[in-house]
Design a protein around this nucleic acid. Structure first.
Lengths: 132, 132, 132, 132
DNA sequence: GTGGTCTAGACCACA
DNA sequence: GTGGTCTAGACCACG
């Protein structure tokens, strides 16, 4: 699992971290039950503040992607990922809507948009299955 | 054109405003060449500061969605919307990727995701064609 | 003399007007002593406010490019153009400096910059000599 | 880096600031990767509102001259300056043209104009190389 | 401590 | 009346 952070992105580092971990799980490079680096070691590895890692982990735990045990450390949730809740569906639609609106404005036709989404879906889910 | 703002949202007001205007254009309820409310009148209508409106308008102008005439006011770009530039495609993919990764994590299969995107696409592009 | 105005430029209309007239004189399409349209007729020709034309003419007169006679109308200064005063030299340097600084930043070498300036000089001074 | 502002100028403060920073980069007194003062400290140093500084920095960032890191502050773009894009060339010609037209009107011959430009080019690029 | 955002209120240039 | 600019002062997210 290689973490890539863009320090001059408008996205906060903790959010980039969450995204990378979620994508790691989606791609299969992080499997349920698998250990994640400790807050301390990850912080020193990628050179960011402890608080930042902590915030990312805490939020991922709240959403059910990982578990944090006081002594044992951090693991990808062995009980499986959170499902498709109504809250998630609503959040997803709220995020998707402005992006789709912009695509329509720019005359991107539906087929092309769906193709882009499909291709990203395939790209993420197949990318790192083998090299964890 | 009805503007709905969520003052509790983590999304800044000016960004919500941009999204609503872009969606208005996408839906056809705002047509190229059509006037937008003046900075001051919109500010007082929706109860936010004029600088907030100004920021939204300025950014929309920079992206090519609207034109700002010095004394005449603001109009939807009559020369048409910005196209599908490489920069846009990259931005779009960067935004889409973490959302798709989360969908995969939550076991949303590709068909369902595509169906959601398609349905939002149809919803936006047909929703307000008649009631400007 | 064809006037081209860009209503969505950041440059005020009266300044665009001044520039066009000065360029007309520089190109030879407007000659010293030649009549300029009256405030009223020019305003209706190009569809802008009387005050705007008036402001442009007044400023051009102050700088010595034209003369305004109450009844006879407006003419290109028959006594010749203003010369190269120290004030002009200072103003010119102040305007040129930030543009040259940006060119340097963008790694435009001196030769290329001089070539651009020379080519604009030739372009303006030869452009409309024959078709007033 | 000494900032000189003319509060009486018709050029907005934020634009003067942008020009001074660009000239600082052109002269070599500001080098890629070098820190710029924080919004607040610069504002109090030169006695203007922090929003004014913010506007200048934001625009310089959009044009690619500087980078703004969310919590670390502002630096001259370490990846190098923006290049000579077609948009830049067009903007430059639009700015240069009326200035050259006026020079022609005032009978400044081409050689003298080119000499002025060349001398400013040399002046800026050599002026502050040593005293950052 | 950093930039990001928002508010309230002001003056100005432009047309 | 329009947008453009500037000020003063505030709260927040981030690290």
């Amino acid at each position: 699992m290689i973490i890539r952070l863009d320090m001059q992105s408008d996205l906060p580092i903790y959010a980039q971290l969450m995204n990378q971990i979620i994508e790691g799980i989606a791609s299969g490079s992080l499997k349920p039950g698998e250990d994640l680096p400790s807050v301390r070691s990850l912080a020193s590895d990628i050179g960011v503040n402890l608080h930042t890692i902590n915030k990312a982990y805490t939020l991922l735990k709240q959403e059910g992607f990982i578990q944090i045990h006081r002594q044992k450390g951090v693991v990808v949730n062995p009980d499986g990922m959170p499902g498709i809740t109504p809250e998630y569906e609503q959040k997803q639609a709220e995020q998707l809507r402005p992006m789709i609106a912009e695509a329509i404005c720019r005359s991107m036709d539906k087929e092309r948009l769906l193709q882009i989404v499909e291709s990203l879906y395939e790209d993420i889910s197949h990318s790192e299955k083998e090299n964890a």
